[in-house]
Design a protein around this nucleic acid. Structure first.
Lengths: 345, 345
DNA sequence: CCTCCGGATTGAAAGGTTTCACAAATCTGG
DNA sequence: CCAGATTTGTGAAACCTTTCAATCCGGAGG
């Protein structure tokens, strides 16, 4: 039994206490923990009994201090409430599990200040590496962190230059296959619903859309921009109302949305206003989140290999920490179109 | 300029290096960091210059080791891909920000082994406290961790006993208001769609449903159980098909779903099978996630104060770390019904 | 000129673990 | 029964920061 002085603080027991209780040296306790095979079974049993007795909990800070770094990865995600990013995170978890590492998730929620706070904390924590979908992929802070010794992998964005590893998806191609499909379905006036194309992603998807039109002999005037302020369900609803307000001769017969949330909002407005999908308006989303398939009219969407994206990013990070003479790699996946009812008459 | 020996390891600079570079003692560097007012401006400037020069990054492990604990909270969530939990996490972030703490998210994804791994890692990390929606709210490990000194707050579940703080929502009441509403709309045969009611939540929601029926003078046979294996969109789809297969005289005219994912799945099947909502089947969901309002037929749902749940949980945790003579509290919120088109003819 | 005071700075200890060279004990084979 | 090999166990140093008592210094007051 543990006898505790009345009123004494139940200060956590350390290896020293365990060693004393088991009647062995500190080094032996360490061996039990880290190289159990180097310790005789009987000694090991004594030590383990003492650990249980004293409720010993290893002090990770001290370990890290000695080891120089931790066994933790972190993913700083742009938007924890977008299922796309949680799926990416799930892929990272797969890789982290395989490497006996823990993955901590941090949600910057699009706020640069929060992102910066997390990055600082993580760097000070000496995490093994940082995965991030940054608010601004070209922010110099990412390079600074990498230069100071914490590997950084950019996820779902491609920063300028080749000084960082990154994993992304070919957004131009995604836009292209989406709109090619719509053109093949006979549409000639197509709305592009998304926020201002200063963001690389949206710009690229739109670019792909224009290419597909051009390939079909249709000029850029066949793409009707419906610009939103962000990429949320509410933005999609708003865009839907504006679209419905257009006079019939100029109203697009199809919409390509910059992500699924926008597409779902648009779909909802269509339902409200009794516009039939796909008959009155065909809709293509982007990301293929689970809710896209689960919509009342299942959504055609450009699927990104979300889980794979995450897993690959984590693997690149691990490679960077183990390889000598690591070369930064920029991996680009190719998205594919998943055709569902929202575009099939 | 930093001059680096060719081939020398760019070992990270510590406070010792900063002190040497600035020509002051170690203690002074520490003072610059922790009590800048105790240091003369000129010295401080020198030290800060040296820190910038050497790209000094504070070593959090060493700090923690000395301080005894970290400035990190963690939330071990049950299902990172369910928007309900990410919203709860957002509330925690609010509270953590206010207390100058970082919140790390860990996703157990319903896997006990992963949950256990995270808990171990967090305890070793000496985090300031653990928030958790556990796979099993009555698992003894939670109490053990708390007894060893890391505060634990259970979120969205109520464990047996009063040995832990917890924050939950009154599920019996939630079930009651949902079904009362359906009864008021004239429904007398109501399906209950959820997994096996061994889980406390589902059991309570079902219990509330029965109470509402009883209060309206309807016996328990008016509740038709459609049991699913989990609470996913796919389960909802499956339940919808079974429901549609029932002969008209016994087929329920309304469904109360144990969460919104199931309700969305059910809604989708209705759309496929040309069953009109709410005319042929009224649907009530649970949680009121964003996608519930965004569905083609906006979903009536029992709203839990998700963000508030998270914020309160984090606040309880902070209280536990600061208060002397802390009393564990079990906070229970009351849910409310949000009525939308899926139940209004 | 001396003392005393307060602010600025210093030096050393402490915190819990890992590592590693070394000592002790046990075993192998001759 | 001994030399040498092998298996166990030991003790001290190192990791980087924070804290705190002690020292230093310039100036005010006597």
């Amino acid at each position: 039994m543990v006898v505790r002085e009345p009123g004494a603080e139940p200060r956590a027991a350390g290896m020293k206490d365990v060693a004393a209780a088991a009647g062995v040296s500190l080094g032996t306790v360490s061996n039990v923990l880290n190289r159990p095979d180097r310790v005789s079974p009987v000694t090991r049993a004594k030590v383990e009994a003492a650990m249980a007795e004293l409720r010993f909990v290893r002090n990770e800070s001290a370990r890290q201090l000695r080891a120089g770094r931790s066994r933790v990865l972190a993913y700083v995600m742009l938007d924890g409430s977008n299922p796309f990013f949680t799926d990416v995170a799930a892929g990272m978890e797969d890789a982290a599990d395989a490497g006996d590492l823990s993955l901590f998730l941090c949600n910057s929620a699009h706020q640069p200040s929060r992102e910066a706070a997390y990055l600082g904390r993580l760097e000070q924590q000496r995490v093994q590496g940082i995965l991030i979908t940054p608010v601004d992929p070209d922010a110099p802070v990412l390079h600074e962190i990498a230069r100071r010794g914490t590997p950084v992998v950019v996820v779902d964005r491609t920063p300028d230059g080749t000084a960082l590893c990154s994993v992304a998806v070919d957004d131009v191609h995604g836009g292209e296959i989406a709109v090619r499909h719509l053109v093949e379905q006979g549409h000639e006036r197509i709305a592009f619903v998304g926020n201002h194309p200063s963001v690389g992603q949206v710009r690229d998807r739109r670019l792909g859309a224009l290419r597909a039109l051009s390939a079909a002999g249709l000029g850029p005037d066949h793409l009707v921009d419906l610009t939103t302020s962000a990429l949320t369900v509410a933005d999609g609803r708003g865009a839907g109302e504006r679209l419905a307000g257009l006079p019939a001769p100029v109203r697009p017969t199809a919409a390509f949305c910059a992500n699924d949330l926008v597409a779902l909002g648009l779909l909802q407005t269509c339902a409200n206003l009794r516009m039939r999908v796909p008959d009155d308006l065909a809709i293509v989303g982007y990301d293929d989140i689970e809710f896209a398939a689960a919509a009342a009219v299942p959504l055609t969407s450009v699927r990104q290999p979300r889980r794979r994206l995450g897993r690959t990013a984590a693997e690149l990070l691990l490679a960077e920490t183990t390889e000598t003479g690591h070369e930064h790699r920029q991996v680009v996946f190719t998205p594919e179109l998943v055709v569902r009812a929202s575009t099939l008459r």
